[in-house]
Nucleic acid binder design. Structure first.
Lengths: 137, 137
DNA sequence: ATTTGTGCAAATCGTTTGCATCTGA
DNA sequence: TCAGATGCAAACGATTTGCACAAAT
């Protein structure tokens, strides 16, 4: 998807100054394949990696990256927002037990017979969330 | 769906004492067809109807009704939880502009090619949310 | 009499905001 | 230089919780 090299180019394209924080966060986010992070989790990870960054900046950055199309935000749970580094067209499993979000392989779901949106409305996105839980109760 | 008469029977079946508040709230919720309410909205409605009830009780009641299968909760938006009086198998439109949730007619969406859930997991629910916005920007 | 529900206010928790200070172009 | 970014702490808003009091069985 987004290669971890040319992070500066990504930021440029998004009209975001390549600041120390943004560079480091983009590196963290896009280096290791597809991920689903919360603000708090990214914050902890950044601090653990020795990146000096505040939580407010984490939030700013996640939102800026989302607006720029580098991330996609997911609401599975009212309690926190997840940010997905995979911006392609795909859907999710949500593990109710551990509050974990997992990508479904792209193309694995087929939706048909989608009704027309209400008058004067257009579809901006279709989200499918398959909630799963452990078989043993 | 749930008829507005025999509300006491509903509560009985759910093992919930038919208190003044629960009776009144059930009446409000199930009297006028399918609805999607937030706690705050139901609270305002109840007070407007002269029902003495606290916000804490609204939350308790909504959760108890959900556990009992009388309501279904929907997370479209990280900011608030919606409770749907239609507990049947159906999906939703979410109007991004007004933060409104609308039922899609049951059977109007067909999902096929659903992947197997991860090892040791079973599907508890499939949620489809079609986000729509006004055509004119 | 005992159990269950209710109301209030305080506490939580993720997220946002205001504002003074820094930093990259 | 100076618009844009960051950090801190305070503010927020939805939801939860603790606990004393009230109501249902």
């Amino acid at each position: 998807m987004h290669s971890s090299r040319n992070v500066p180019a990504l930021l440029n394209k998004a009209n975001l100054r390549p600041t120390r924080q943004r560079l480091a966060l983009a590196e963290l986010l896009f280096a290791k394949g597809d991920r689903h992070v919360t603000a708090e989790a990214l914050y902890d990870e950044a601090r653990a990696a020795g990146i000096g960054v505040s939580l407010a900046t984490i939030y700013n950055t996640l939102h800026q990256f989302s607006s720029a199309g580098l991330l996609r935000s997911i609401s599975v749970d009212t309690s926190k927002t997840y940010f997905d580094t995979n911006t392609g067209n795909h859907h999710h499993f949500f593990l109710e037990d551990g509050d974990e979000v997992i990508d479904m392989p792209q193309g694995s779901i087929e939706i048909s017979n989608l009704p027309e949106p209400p008058e004067g409305m257009e579809i901006s996105q279709v989200d499918v969330i398959v909630r799963v839980r452990s078989t043993r109760k």
